[in-house]
Design a protein around this nucleic acid. Structure first.
Length: 265
DNA sequence: ATGTCAGTCTTGGACTGA
């Protein structure tokens, strides 16, 4: 059973590369983030030709998540229960959730594809929103963990440790590395989720994201912000996991590389 | 900090978000 997660930074712009990658890598279950397309515009037929069923959640130009599976795709959930939306500070009432989470039952597991809010800056309401989003995610995953095997994959927009950013000093005062964000991840692990750390195929750090600008990928100035959090029973089946940095190379890549996880049957 | 992308509208260039 091969599971993968990939922030594709637009499924439309990435479609040729996605299809080639699916055909070559042959994952059974794929979690996609930043599809940046409405659900009705998702290229269902194109991935279907490779044998995948699709569940997509999108709300237009930003965000967007999807699940592809050829190991079953049942009980699809768009957004997690209790998921907050972004609301300006003076907005009254609850905001509708953005398209940042989709879950389904695939291959006997509950699988989630997650795209956490970026947070923008520490003084931004988007940062408050990010922390609140994680707090509610914790509650939702706690409930799901009680029902069976689970894996929550995606772009968490948090680097778990200083070793997960290329230069921690440069990130002082920035999002993605604060104690509060790292505590949000620790709170998820405290539920019993395990961080399935992939093998970097080059260098010491399993980075999954490199900014497009300034030759960051070439210099391996990256971050590990895409994560696979697995319940103990799933984590115990992990045979191997790696960052597919080849997918970050060449013409027209995403700024994120996929993580590929092989599980014992 | 920003040398790049992608989506969209204000449309062949500017804006936003990352």
């Amino acid at each position: 059973m091969r599971l993968a997660t990939w922030n594709v930074n637009s499924v439309k712009a990435r479609l040729p590369r996605l299809l080639d990658w699916l055909a070559e890598t042959k994952p059974d279950i794929v979690c996609l983030q930043e599809t940046k397309c409405p659900a009705e515009a998702f290229p269902v037929a194109e991935v279907g030709a490779l044998g995948y069923a699709t569940a997509a959640h999108g709300d237009g130009r930003w965000n967007g998540v999807a699940l592809l599976s050829r190991a079953g795709l049942d009980d699809v959930t768009l957004s997690f229960p209790g998921e907050p939306g972004f609301a300006e500070l003076d907005t009254v009432g609850a905001a509708r959730a953005e398209a940042r989470a989709i879950g389904a039952t695939c291959g006997g597991m509950r699988v989630w594809s997650l795209y956490a809010p970026n947070g923008r800056s520490l003084d931004s309401p988007h940062y408050t929103y990010k922390l609140g989003w994680f707090a509610e995610l914790r509650e939702a995953l706690a409930a799901e963990l009680a029902t069976g095997p689970l894996v929550a994959c995606g772009d968490y927009n948090v680097a778990p440790t200083d070793a997960d950013v290329w230069d921690p000093a440069l990130f002082a005062g920035s999002t993605h590395v604060t104690p509060a964000e790292r505590q949000a991840l620790a709170d998820l692990r405290d539920l019993g989720l395990q961080d399935v750390v992939p093998t970097p195929m080059k260098g010491p750090h399993p980075f999954t994201y490199w900014d497009y600008r300034a030759g960051m990928f070439h210099q391996n100035k990256g971050m590990r912000i895409d994560l696979v959090y697995a319940s103990a029973d799933v984590a115990g089946r992990v045979r191997s996991a790696y960052v597919d940095r080849e997918a970050r190379k060449g013409k027209g890549p995403s700024d994120h590389a996929p993580i590929v996880v092989d599980l014992e049957p």
